[in-house]
């Protein structure tokens, strides 16, 4: 299965594109062939940077990735705080619950409030990436079996040693799942922010989707190889 998996995935993509090509007149989106033609005809350097699709795309991607990294880091620290400190848990939990349900529509407000071009998109991406990671960190660290902790206590391990040797590796699968979810959220947020700034083109959308797929595959691959022994029912991430 593992040998044929990528091939089958490729076949799936080709089939999907063929269906899209056939059904293009029925849906609003242009057919893949038209998208490829449009991409091929993009002028090397557009005169107007505001509508240059390539510049927009790179801006969207960089803000999504930057937001994902920052949001992931802050989310991890936040999750750690929520687990480790009861005081922090009491103080921060209402805040975590509230903005996690913020709808994407606030993007418009954030865009209107901040003037500089790529800041808001990254900020929005970080904001929305923060909560999946925080929640995953909390869930992962809380799910460490108590008898494993007993074993570390039996070795008279310090809290830091217990964290590094046991709790972090034990929480890693959940953490990775949270990071994957956060990547999807960050990309969606950055794309939405980009759309508000300039009208999107089908070609840009298409490229963005392709790059999203590649990023997810890369993250999947990393996770699978890092965590291949993380649990008895391995591989953990499928």
């Amino acid at each position: 299965m593992s040998g044929r998996g990528p091939l089958l995935g490729l076949a799936g993509i080709v089939c999907g594109l063929a269906c899209w090509q056939g059904l293009a007149p029925l849906v609003m989106l242009p057919a893949p062939c038209a998208v490829v033609t449009a991409l091929a005809n993009v002028p090397p350097a557009s005169c107007d940077p505001g509508t240059d699709q390539m510049a927009l795309l790179s801006l969207t991607l960089s803000s999504a990735l930057g937001g994902w990294l920052i949001g992931g880091l802050v989310g991890f620290v936040l999750g750690l705080l929520l687990v480790e400190s009861r005081l922090a848990n009491r103080l921060l939990m209402p805040w975590v619950r509230m903005p996690a349900s913020l709808p994407g529509a606030v993007a418009a407000f954030i865009l209107a409030w901040y003037a500089w071009p790529d800041g808001p998109a990254a900020l929005l991406a970080a904001w929305l990436a923060l909560f999946p990671v925080a929640v995953a960190t909390v869930a992962g660290l809380r799910a460490v079996p108590p008898h494993w902790l007993d074993v570390m206590r039996g070795f008279s391990a310090s809290p830091l040693e217990t964290f590094l040797a046991l709790r972090l590796p034990a929480a890693a699968p959940q953490l990775f799942a949270g990071l994957r979810r956060a990547l999807a959220t960050a990309l969606a947020a950055a794309a939405a922010a980009g759309f508000l700034r300039a009208p999107p083109s089908a070609a840009g959308l298409f490229l963005l989707a392709a790059i999203c797929g590649l990023l997810h595959a890369a993250l999947d691959w990393t996770g699978r190889h890092l965590l291949r022994n993380a649990a008895p029912g391995r591989p953990l991430l499928r």
Binding site: H147, W148, G154, S156, L166, P169, A172, N229, A230, R234
Partner: peptide
Amino acid sequence: AGHAPSVGFMLAESTLFPWL
């Protein structure tokens, strides 16, 4: 806080860390 160093124990549950 921790057991005396001269006692080793093996619990009923499986306690080998699967990633090692």
